[in-house]
Every structure is written in C-alpha cells, then in structure tokens.
Design a protein around this nucleic acid. Structure first.
Lengths: 146, 146
DNA sequence: ATTGAGATTTTGAATCATTCTAAACGGCTA
DNA sequence: TAGCCGTTTAGAATGATTCAAAATCTCAAT
C-alpha cells in the first residue's frame, strides 16, 4: 500500500544522507517513504505504525533516530504545536502551518517570499536567523474540508 | 527583591480574573508579580523558584495552575520552542519571539501590524485564525548582549 | 568476495515536563 | 455557623522523548 520511492525521491534521500556523511539503511528508506506517501504531518508514533506494515520489527527508537537524522540533513521539517507530539513534514518549500483546533489537523500554507523578507527585516541588526516558524491556530469553516 | 504589583498591574490582574469568573488568591498575585518582575520568559520551574522566595511552601502544581489560568484569561502568553519547557510572557502587545540558540534566551521582537495583516491574508478564505505564532531561531552576534 | 571500523538498530530502562487525583483549605453567602 | 465551590497541595501517574549497552549492519579498502 505504500509506494516505493521514485528515482528522484530516492536520489534526494541518498544525496542528503551522503552530504552529511550518513549511511543508507532500509529503515531510513522506509521512514522517508512513509513521510512522502501521506503528507499529513504525522507524529513519530503514526510514522512508526505506518512503517511497521512494511517492516514488521522496526523499532520506535529507530523511527526517532531516522526522523532526527532527516531533520539534521534538511530533508524534513519538524512541526511543533503547543505541547503536542512533534509532527514531521517533508515539504521543503517555505511555508507556514495552520492547525485546525477542531480536527487537530495541520495544513501547509504557502508563504510568499516577500513576507519572509519583511519578517527578517524586523529583527535587530545583530540577530542572525537560522529558521523562522510561523504557525496559525484556529478553525476551518465547513465548506470543503481540505 | 520582588516589587509588589503597582496599582495598574493589580487592576489588570483583578479585572482579568473577574472577567472570567475566577478568584483572586495570594498565589496568583505572587505568580503574576514574578512574571512582571523579570520579563525573561521564565519556565514554570523558574517562576516556581522565584515565587518560593516570597511564599515558601507554594507548590509547583499551583504555579502550573496559576499560569494556565492566566493564559486562559489572556493575561499571559505561552512561548513554545521545539520541545523545551514552555515559557511564559506577560507582554500582550503583538510580537514575535527570537530564540538565541547559544544562550537559550528568548527575546521579544516587535511585530508591525501590517505584517500581521498580510499574514492573515495568505490563509484560504475558510480558515479562521485565533492565534498566530512567529518564532525565529538563530544567534545574536556579540556586540550588546541584549 | 572478505574484513574491519564505525555507524545504526534494537530493547528496555530512564528522564522530565506536565497532568491528574484526592484530600485539605479558604472565603463567601445563606 | 454551616455549607458550597473554587483553589491549593502532595504525590502519583502519564506520555513523549532520550539514553545505554549490546547486537547488527554498511561501506570502503583489501
């Protein structure tokens, strides 16, 4: 039920790992595949259970390890909301997150470059940014349940 | 070492509590006082230890309760960064947070209203925002260690 | 193909912030 | 003075995440 990585996806994975001097393992491929297969910002536990179907015996700690590795080499972003479990997102384009309080779901919101630029401008001169996180919290009015 | 609340501060506290039908207690006054006394985004534990000096015997659970109450009635904002302990901030003006990775300190960054406006505009029509959180992560280059 | 060094995975225990529970307390109204 | 209800307290419980140690795997060099 989970497709394999396509050539391009496999390449990004291998490149990213290689670039930061890490090895390719079946576990890492599967965890990455799970992330790409369903871009719904899963928690570690969700990734774990999805991956188990392909690789029974995979351990939770490994999923933690893999995801940490991916974040470390820039393949994946962490999404934190309040004190909830950390979620993971393979969308590398600059974007914000909107958390729907009624469903708990997280949606990606495209982020125009100009806004990002403006944001970095409000910082005092000696502040050097590495990451910017923008998260909305609210509800979606019925209509299309995106 | 910790000043009492001034008239205006005490009023905001009493008003906010009254408005949401909650009682004024010595614990709440002290916790609020601690927050105002040193606006360095303390964790619950930091608030707890500071408050202990004024009220020995205060319990940690109470500090959790008080802070939750304040957040609930809009007196105080939570500041979350990654998976670290939640921090608390009595600055009610719209602002972003900058977390200095080398010191762990969190700085308030004034947020121009126009940027906030622009941000709400990038949301799909049926998304209703309640809160927006913007957090920067990076380092401050020496000079004045603000 | 084989080997060895070093990275990775695994299991289960440990950590730590936060939440929960139940009992004691406090203040206000009848 | 009694009772009600919100608050505080201490300590236990929870739950996500991290850690430790041993087993296993990957990859470059042979």
């Amino acid at each position: 039920m989970i497709q394999n990585l396509n050539k391009h996806e496999r390449e990004s994975l291998h490149e990213a790992l290689a670039k930061s001097g890490q090895k390719i393992t079946p576990q890492r491929e599967i965890v990455y595949t799970v992330l790409l297969a369903q871009r719904d910002h899963p928690t570690v536990d969700e990734v774990y259970h999805r991956a188990l179907e392909t690789m029974p015996g995979l351990s939770l700690a490994t999923v933690y390890n893999c995801l940490e590795t991916f974040v470390g080499c820039g393949l994946v972003r962490q999404v934190n909301h309040e004190r909830e479990s950390t979620r993971y997102c393979p969308n590398l384009a600059p974007h914000a997150h909107f958390r729907d309080e009624s469903t708990g779901r997280v949606h990606d919101i495209e982020l125009p470059k100009e806004i990002l630029d403006q944001l970095t401008k409000i910082l005092p001169a000696n502040f050097e940014t590495e990451t910017i996180e923008i998260s909305f919290q609210g509800r979606t009015k019925s209509s299309t349940q995106n």
